[in-house]
Design a protein around this nucleic acid. Structure first.
Lengths: 348, 348
DNA sequence: TCTGCGTGAGAAAACGGTTTCCTAAGGAGG
DNA sequence: CCTCCTTAGGAAACCGTTTTCTCACGCAGA
């Protein structure tokens, strides 16, 4: 199949099929005019030789590299990786590969990476980050290639994809209410985060003004503290906690267990992010809101390619729905009976 | 600086500097012969126009793309991301960008990604994975470009980079002994993993045959179970636990706390992987062995580039040293060694 | 028979650089 | 004054495709 020696060029294919290079090119790309017979003969020759066109030569003239860049400041990759997976999945069968560039929060580094990618004639750029209401430390306006923002804030009039945290939070709280929880509180991150405000406002909207929101940090220890604050006083205690992320939720669950309060029997807990590694290792495993980051990635990939191909794309913010993943911490319908003493989690 | 309109070509630079394209090229690449004055004039013109050479055109003739591919089956990215960061760091100032390709364990997907990259004339490929003793599901022998294996097993006679788990484990156990621990046990993952066997053998070597090794899964719950097993009987209990990874360590620490056993006062615990998110959120924060994955990545990047440039590289397995990160769970001199990590920002 | 037209296929010009010659000018030596 | 050599700089080939343009041919209509 594959010719052993030097790379096979279209010239070799043409010679084997006894046509000109021009005809060979047209045959392989299903363009131009020729007999079906000729076309097939060329294609057969190409397969026989294992011909694969040199993307640089092709790109040089077509002004396309079949390459896009993903720029992110989420070094840890917690959000970027699922996005990346989605992008990749959406583009790989179109022959597009993805450059991943982790620029901490360093404008100079960002510039270097950006320039390197532009030199390579990327067809488009997707900007992503670890926080929806922050910009990357590098100016992406006025680029000669299209830009799509995924899970991070873009310029005015840009194409931006984010998760619908309001809808996700609504589903989470409604899920709690549907399980007869009457006193749901919300323990979340710093109010400076837009997502915190949005999640809290959804919570309030569903609860109907009666709620209680505790702002803190995104850490497990804040979950512990919040429990201490909520259960430290006499009187009526919450019967459900909707948490701003899974780490807080884990802290809450652990703190409750330490107080001898059963989850989910006495208190239901729901997290946010559906960060597998936290959600599934918590005891009991966390019900959590999944932001469908992979779907955001897929959509971003699709859109940036449309733009690259000159198709019109309506600018603006697109919100993609979240999905509530029900595990045991909410007392949901998923395997309610706590018979699995030490749940066997998938090994690495 | 940057000309607004169409891309600046070397032709434009040549015209502005009043030289030929050939001279311009030579001036900018510091090759060829010409007056210093001419060279500087060309360079000035290039800067003035904001000229950046088209990497495809250049690559076409030089047969280099200044691009390398990272192929991995570690979808979650726990190991791949640090490696990626290292590669990127080592290569970015040489103008090289990195394609990241996550191929689950799907040979077909691997092939597709690999072909896409080869079409793009990558200068080299780095293979990585989530497990050191497993191969990627795609054949990388006989490729027209050099391959370096980082944190995954390569063909016979390949260039491979791994962490020195033996040394890392040795340091960990010695650290425990140095803190007057007399009864150190080792709770680790499945014996089928090469890294498990290596870590265990280092443990045994340091302890001197007296040890006890408990194999299980890589999960927190296994940490709990192991504690139940170790402390379930009467008699002498361990005063230190060296764990095969941070998740197990976290399980152990949590289980000990639930039994009212103080860490690190009564029992010291050391983990492995130094997975920030687990190690630093554990109470108390985990002392853990860091595999220096970023260094592995840097070295892999450096080596694959050397190979791409035709320089000779000795094949074989290179082991890079691990580094013990001391936090509080081992009763070490905490705070001192703790490097300022991205922990605080690991939030949303 | 002559004109016109559709059709298959090839020649050659791109694309934007790099690299290999080649040339013209100037200086040194005889 | 003539030859030879050195040197700065340019013309053109080249990388491997795609794309445009041209051409020859055969057939239909007049």
């Amino acid at each position: 199949m594959n010719a052993g020696g030097g790379r096979v060029r279209i010239y070799d294919v043409a010679r084997l099929a006894e046509v000109s290079v021009a005809t060979a090119s047209k045959a392989l790309n299903d363009t131009g005019r020729m007999t079906e017979e000729t076309r097939n003969r060329v294609k057969a020759a190409a397969t026989e030789l294992g011909f694969r066109p040199n993307a640089m030569a092709r790109g040089l003239i077509q002004k396309r590299s079949f390459t896009i860049g993903l720029l992110t400041n989420d070094t840890y990759g917690r959000f970027t990786l699922p996005v990346m997976a989605g992008i990749s999945a959406a583009l790989v069968d179109r022959g597009v590969s993805v450059f991943l560039c982790g620029i901490e929060d360093d404008p100079a580094l960002g510039r270097v990476h950006l320039d390197a990618m532009l030199d390579k004639q990327v067809d488009g750029i997707i900007a992503s980050g670890k926080r929806i209401d922050r910009r990357l430390p590098v100016d992406l306006s006025d680029l000669p290639v299209p830009v799509v923002y995924a899970f991070t804030e873009g310029q005015e009039g840009s194409v931006t994809l984010v998760s619908d945290d309001f809808q996700g939070s609504t589903e989470a709280v409604e899920h709690l209410l549907a399980h007869d929880r009457k006193r749901v509180v919300h323990v979340t991150g710093p109010e400076t985060f837009a997502s915190v405000r949005e999640r809290a406002s959804a919570y309030r909207a569903v609860i109907g003004g009666e709620g209680r929101v505790l702002y803190g940090t995104w850490s497990e220890s804040w979950g512990h503290e919040a429990v201490a604050e909520l259960w430290g006083t006499d009187g009526e205690h919450p019967d459900a906690v909707f948490c701003g992320n899974d780490q807080i939720a884990r802290g809450v669950v652990d703190a409750l267990r330490e107080r001898g309060i059963k989850v989910p029997e006495s208190v239901s807990v729901v997290g946010f992010d559906n960060w597998e590694i936290v959600a599934s290792q918590t005891r009991p495993p966390l019900t959590s809101v999944d932001m469908n980051l992979e779907a955001i990635g897929r959509e971003a990939g699709r859109l940036v390619l449309e733009l690259a191909e000159g198709k019109p794309v309506e600018p603006g913010v697109r919100k993609l729905p979240c999905r509530l993943v029900i595990r045991q911490s909410s007392g949901g319908d998923a395997a309610v009976t706590e018979r699995r003493g030490g749940l066997a989690t998938a090994a690495d």
